[in-house]
């Protein structure tokens, strides 16, 4: 959607806005299915994923017709910092969505751990009964989370099309969203952990690409799985118990105990 609007209007910002709105609508749909109707989330999630894939493919064919490229976002060099050799190009020469992603990490952390709303979010995820007793609307908060989270997913999709690939083609995500879900588990449901996991995964991925390009003699199959292997190993050897919200995936119904 974001791509379509950008392509039609030539305005990337409008495209990104539309991606956020589309994401919010998908989140709302997921909310109706899994919160109001209390459907099994894993299954309804797969259903919604297929719906989204099919719908985007259909709309693409109907309204765009053929693979089309766009100008996309330009890298913004941060004055001063961007001129530092090596580090400058790695960290300070990206389009602004990349910076936004980094900025969102501390913001999410503050919101989740330092605000009343964040406390409510965590409460409805771990002990919805207690939250309900204290007068927090469990369904309401869960709806808000889903819509917000889906808007972020929409933003991520917009990043792929207008920020990175600068084009749209069927199945452009190639299952990347599932890596994101896995990284949430890896990061133990904390924004900082997820940032660390993402960096580890993407650095390993970038490393294996360079290994291949420079012709270092490694079977490419091994190179391609390297990021996954490293992520699993890091998860296996890291300390502490893997923590997940107690009420994860469990619909809340008043008067029952989960």
């Amino acid at each position: 959607m974001g791509f379509f609007v950008t392509w039609r209007t030539g305005n990337i910002y409008l495209g990104i806005l539309i991606s956020l709105i589309t994401g919010a609508l998908m989140g709302l749909l997921m909310g109706i299915v899994s919160i109001t109707f209390k459907a099994e989330q894993g299954i309804s999630g797969i259903g919604l994923y297929m719906f989204g894939w099919g719908l985007s493919g259909l709309l693409f064919r109907l309204y765009v017709g053929a693979i089309t490229t766009i100008e996309g976002l330009r890298p913004v060099k941060i004055p001063g910092l961007g001129d530092i050799p090596y580090i400058g190009t790695i960290f300070f020469n990206h389009n602004w969505l990349v910076y936004l992603a980094y900025i969102l990490v501390p913001i999410s952390w503050v919101v989740l751990y330092k605000t009343t709303w964040g406390l409510k979010v965590r409460a409805v995820g771990t002990t919805p009964e207690a939250a309900d007793n204290l007068g927090v609307s469990v369904d309401g908060i869960r709806y808000q989370c889903l819509v917000l989270g889906s808007m972020m997913a929409g933003l991520a999709g917009a990043y792929l099309t207008v920020g990175q690939a600068n084009m749209y083609a069927d199945y452009i995500t190639a299952g990347r969203g599932f890596i994101a879900v896995a990284l949430v588990y890896f990061g133990r449901w904390s924004p900082l952990g997820i940032l660390a996991g993402s960096l580890l995964f993407s650095m390993a991925d970038s490393f294996q690409q360079w290994v291949q390009v420079l012709g270092i003699s490694v079977p490419y199959e091994l190179a391609v799985i390297l990021p996954y292997v490293i992520t699993i190993m890091a998860l296996a050897v890291s300390f502490g118990r893997v923590w997940a919200p107690a009420a994860l995936g469990r619909p809340y119904e008043r008067g029952t105990r989960g």
Partner: peptide, 27 residues
């Protein structure tokens, strides 16, 4: 001739990234 694989037939973004690495490496 430098050869690198993405490990997929339809990873459009991955292919783009690999092309960028090739170009960074001088291709």
């Amino acid at each position: 001739v430098r050869i690198a694989y993405t490990g997929s037939f339809n990873d459009i973004v991955g292919a783009g990234e690999l092309a960028k690495v090739h170009m960074d490496a001088g291709a």
